[in-house]
Amino acid sequence: MGGGSSGSWSRLGDIRSLEEKAKQALQGGKRNVFISFATEDMDEVNLLRAHAKNENSDIEFNDHSVREPYNSDRAAYIKEKIGERIARSSVCVVYVSDSTRQSDWVKWEVQESIRQGKKVVGVHPRGKAPKITPKWVSDHGIRLVKWADLPKELK
């Protein structure tokens, strides 16, 4: 039995690097994105989802919308499941509209994404920037871009 211990740590790093390259190859270079949005913005977000389904798109969306009130009896369970979805994503895209400020869920999802070390990008459709951007967007230094600029932001 032998071998020095110094080589095993570098091999571990090599294995992790190979795992990451394999994941990217399997996804075809697409990004796994968690979308955070207020329920009132469902129609707009569905357009964003449709964009991602285009085979020429370089974005893969993974979203989990919340259908129960934030303070429901199941809030802890919902948070746990959303946290798992966020963990499987590489970036959180938060759809920012005039409705976003009132959503405790969106604020929590963004905070959870940041806590997990995920990149967070705010997006709005061209010509539809919110009248008032939520304070937590600037507090966390979240970049707010036009919908059309999102693919460049995710590279």
Rank of each mutant, 00 (worst) to 15 (best):
G4E: 11
G4F: 13
G4Q: 12
G4I: 11
S8Q: 06
S8I: 12
W9H: 07
S10V: 09
S10D: 05
G13A: 11
G13I: 07
I15F: 06
I15G: 02
I15N: 06
I15T: 07
R16E: 13
L18S: 08
E20Q: 13
K21D: 10
K21M: 06
A22G: 06
A22M: 12
A22C: 10
Q24P: 00
A25Q: 14
L26D: 06
Q27E: 10
Q27I: 06
G28E: 09
G29Y: 09
G29D: 10
R31I: 09
I35P: 00
S36V: 03
F37V: 08
A38P: 10
D41M: 11
M42C: 09
M42P: 02
D43R: 12
E44A: 13
E44W: 08
E44H: 06
V45F: 09
N46V: 11
N46W: 13
N46I: 12
N46T: 14
L47E: 09
H51Y: 05
A52W: 00
K53T: 12
K53S: 11
N54G: 02
N54Q: 06
S57L: 02
D58V: 03
D58T: 07
F61Y: 06
F61L: 10
N62R: 13
S65G: 12
S65Y: 15
S65F: 15
S65V: 10
E68M: 12
E68V: 15
P69H: 04
P69I: 03
P69G: 04
D73E: 14
A75E: 13
Y77F: 14
K79Y: 03
E80W: 10
E80G: 11
K81E: 15
K81Y: 10
I82C: 06
I82N: 01
I82W: 01
G83D: 14
E84A: 15
E84K: 15
R85Q: 15
I86L: 10
S89R: 05
S90E: 15
V91W: 00
C92E: 03
C92S: 05
C92I: 07
Y95D: 00
Y95N: 03
V96E: 00
S97T: 10
S99A: 14
T100L: 02
R101F: 08
Q102D: 14
Q102P: 02
S103C: 04
V106Q: 00
K107P: 05
K107R: 15
K107C: 10
K107W: 07
E109W: 12
E109Q: 15
E109V: 13
E109G: 11
Q111R: 06
Q111L: 07
Q111D: 07
E112G: 02
S113V: 03
S113A: 14
I114L: 13
R115I: 07
Q116V: 11
G117D: 11
K118Q: 06
V120K: 01
V120L: 01
V120P: 00
V121E: 02
G122S: 03
G122H: 02
V123Q: 01
V123A: 03
P125R: 04
P125A: 02
R126A: 04
G127C: 12
G127D: 11
G127T: 09
K128Q: 14
A129Q: 13
A129T: 07
I132N: 08
I132E: 08
P134N: 05
K135H: 09
K135A: 14
V137S: 00
S138H: 11
S138N: 11
I142G: 00
R143V: 11
L144G: 02
V145G: 03
V145N: 04
W147E: 06
A148P: 00
A148F: 03
D149Y: 00
P151W: 01
K152N: 05
E153S: 04
